[in-house]
Amino acid sequence: MFETIKKLAGSFGVSGSEEQIREVIKNEIDGKVDEIKVDALGNLIAVKKGSGKKIMVAAHMDEIGVMATYIDEKGFIRFSNVGWVWQYFALGQRVMFKNGTAGAVFYEQKLKEIKDLKLSNMYIDIGAKSREETEKKVKIGDTACFVGDTVLAGNMVMSKALDDRGGCAVLVKTIQEMPDTDNEIYFVFTVQEELGLRGAKTSAFGIMPDIAIAIDVTDTGDTPECELMEVKCGGGPAIKIKDRSFIAHPEVRRLIENSAKEIGIPYQFEIMEQGGTDAGAIHVTGGGVPSGVISIPCRYVHSPVEMADITDIENCVKLLRQCLKGY
């Protein structure tokens, strides 16, 4: 599991630039499904054919990052966020453009109060001495991801982009040991989730499944002086009750809960006050798709040091397999 996560999380795939991660995933699942396609927005759709129910399983392959918007005469790059980037997380971090160009994120020193820190008074330094030199490596509109190696810390994996390469890993592992079922399963690695659940919406429209399950990360309430939340790392997969994007469909929620009971893994319920997932877009597609979410409890979401428990992720695979068989 760790190796798979490392491979996926280490790949480049800022929202809107998912080409590289898409290839990596494609290679992982090649030959394991009946059909693989890429749609107009770039969603990767892997189909296991069957004559039973149509189930869509979604994990987004995009990650947050930054986009170059201006290059000054000394070669410094001004940037904008791609997805939700907190300026304080970005400060002092290293970013990497798709072509491998590394950059340091820092802020205008004249800034007196750190609370006035905004992305617009920060910049990226790629070590170039002039606009021309920078332009050879980076052009306006290019995106960069935050750098955060994938390492083990106890039973936890620490990395950038566990949101949602953790979910992608769950899908990849499920595909590699495909559950024995007659259901027709659409594994969708979606694009542009961080920009507003876009890929999930358009891919669901094309598939029109009977039900959908999204796999994504959720916040936790198990760190010092944090916001109240019942979800804990190591407490098992979290079954979503609601978030900002939707209320989980009771039928799918029950399917997930019953599946967890059947295989005897720990699980927990999740109410997430901020943020949404692909399921929010999928469930209002067409005449409605009952949807639910299996969440990976994850600390420090949208930072380069996201942390999640490996056993939780492994249990997500078991749980998903059971759901696909049991529906």
């Binding site: 939707f246 209002v284 067409g286």
Partner: peptide, 16 residues
């Protein structure tokens, strides 16, 4: 249903 949260019922039933 679900008007108070996301207009879900309206989106789904007007489409259907």
């Amino acid at each position: 249903t679900q008007e108070e949260t996301h207009l879900t019922g309206a989106i789904i039933s007007s489409y259907a």
